[in-house]
């Protein structure tokens, strides 16, 4: 029994990770932690090094430098029974039947044949593919194959769920279904690391996020912290008439009669409203909101950045 207060050990611990491919540096110097039970958004533009980081974490790549630990040690395939990994490059044995493939992976992850079969059948039922159990995988549509792959990923009730762009290829209905499934896993106690380009998904699901840029962390913290870092609140107004130029705010976005105004430092919302009224703008609605992640994303990556490494 230890009486001293201990800081929770992170489930995933990455320090000074660097990854070179030949002369090209994909990840420069990356450090972050993911704690048990949280849902972590792993964000960044195309080619910023997200997939590379996940692969190095799972031992698929040998990191050039740095520490990448899961539960305090380097990942080994035998720990795979507690992991659910949905790779960016999806793929299963295409010439075998859906059920055979699911049961095979279930057994490799430590389930018994009967257990794996039973789980697979009820999952297929749930995702509306019960009639496809004995069909070859390559006879399924892309989205249907994605569902099978997601099933394989979660069938061992993983403690750590790593999803690289999980919604890629899903229609809106199935995207909703997938988000529900992820939320279920989360409620069941799984820690989730999720790469996605859908900022609304992040806002809905994630506790904390990291933004990768040029192979290193651009921002890292809770969703609110990151929002505050990039201008915090915005004022969203619906109005008629021209918006005046003012040194109280910048126009972050303007679209028809809707505009997002970013207050300058030390300015509060009431001052902005007064300023608008003073200039004769007819304000129909006036709300304050945090800067959307999408806005932040555009701001961080909107300007073309120097190519990484070289």
């Amino acid at each position: 029994m230890s009486a001293s207060a201990t800081v929770a050990e992170p489930l995933v611990h990455i320090r000074n990770f660097r990854m070179d491919f030949g002369t090209q540096t994909a990840v420069r110097d990356l450090s972050f932690d993911v704690f048990a039970g949280e849902t972590f958004g792993f964000l960044g533009s195309n080619g910023s090094g997200k997939t590379t980081t996940l692969r190095a974490l799972l031992g698929i790549y040998q990191p050039t430098a740095g520490t990448l630990h899961i539960a305090g040690k380097v990942f080994e395939p035998r720990d795979g029974a507690r992991l659910g990994y949905l790779p960016e490059e999806r793929g299963l044995y295409k010439k075998e039947s859906v059920l055979d493939v699911m049961v095979y992976f279930g057994r490799l992850k430590g389930l018994g044949r009967a257990g794996a079969t039973q789980w697979s059948r009820s999952y297929l039922e749930r995702v509306d593919l019960a009639d496809k159990a004995d069909v070859r995988l390559d006879k399924l549509s892309g989205g249907q194959q994605q569902k099978i792959q997601l099933g394989v990923t979660i069938m061992n009730s993983p403690e750590l769920l790593i999803l690289d762009e999980p919604t890629q290829g899903f229609d809106p209905v199935n995207r909703r279904l997938l988000m529900d499934i992820i939320e279920e896993q989360k409620r069941a106690g799984a820690t989730v690391i999720m790469v996605t380009h859908q900022m609304d998904e992040v806002e809905r699901l994630c506790d904390r996020v990291i933004l990768l840029k040029d192979g290193t962390a651009e921002a890292y913290g809770t969703v609110e912290e990151v929002q505050d870092l990039y201008g915090g609140t915005v004022v969203r107004v619906r109005c008629a008439g021209l918006l005046p130029a003012s040194d109280l705010f910048d126009v972050a976005r303007s679209d028809g009669d809707l505009a997002d105004l970013a207050p300058r430092a030390g300015v509060d919302e009431a001052q902005i409203l007064a300023e608008l009224v003073r200039h004769g703008v007819q304000v129909r609605s006036f709300t304050t909101a945090r800067t959307s992640l999408e806005e932040i994303f555009l701001r961080v990556y909107g300007t073309p950045s120097e190519p990484v490494g070289v």
Binding site: I60, P77, P87, G91, L92, Y93, K94, F105
Partner: peptide, 14 residues
């Protein structure tokens, strides 16, 4: 060719 490698490598010893 079917991109199964990542699933395999994280599940069992090659």
């Amino acid at each position: 060719e079917n991109r199964v490698t990542e699933m395999i490598l994280t599940t069992m010893n090659p």
